[in-house]
Amino acid sequence: MDKLKNFIDENRQEFEEFKAPEELWAGISQRLKEEKHFPILTEEKQSKKNKQVNKTVKMYSFSRSMLMRVAASVLILLVAGITWVSYKIDALEDDPPLSKTEAYYEQIFHAKLTELKQYENDDLFDRDLLIDIQELEEIYNDLKNDLKEDANNEQVVEAMIRNYRVRIELLEKMLNEIKLKKNPNGKGIYPKNEGTHEKDKSI
């Protein structure tokens, strides 16, 4: 009889001295979660017994995780799509009003300028003022370039509109003075600011 074996068997409990560290389960359950989402398909093929139950379970969890991934992908694409489209719409919507506004002021500005040109030889025709206006036009072009870099900067757009208004106001002021001199009884054809301000509200 093997006395060593007897000795071990009799004192077996004393030989079981170690306790499994509690933290090990966390690692195991984490790994199991990962395995659940990426089942080893080859192992599934090998199994014969319990195959039906297990396969259903695994396929279910697999297809569910696939579904989640597909859903997540669709969601991301959708959000990205919406963001892009709304950005484009913003850009499209922002653009027409500005170009419209620009065209509107441009038209008035040129009308005034053309009108003013017929008084070119008048004493009150202020060439210095025209130089100022030209400077303002240059500032305007700078602002327009700024806007290309920062398409949605409202401050720049506001400055551009103010710039046009100032230029138009200056032309109107000069025209009014000349016309007032030529027709002292009249109140002036272009009352100060009125022409532009009314239209502004519609923009």
Binding site: A20, G27, L32, E35, K49, N50
Partner: peptide, 18 residues
């Protein structure tokens, strides 16, 4: 021993159908 225990239990649970 810790690593082996983890490995073994993960394998046991994933191969439980066998």
């Amino acid at each position: 021993a810790k690593d082996l225990l983890q490995e073994a239990f993960v394998e046991a649970f994933t191969k439980l159908h066998t």
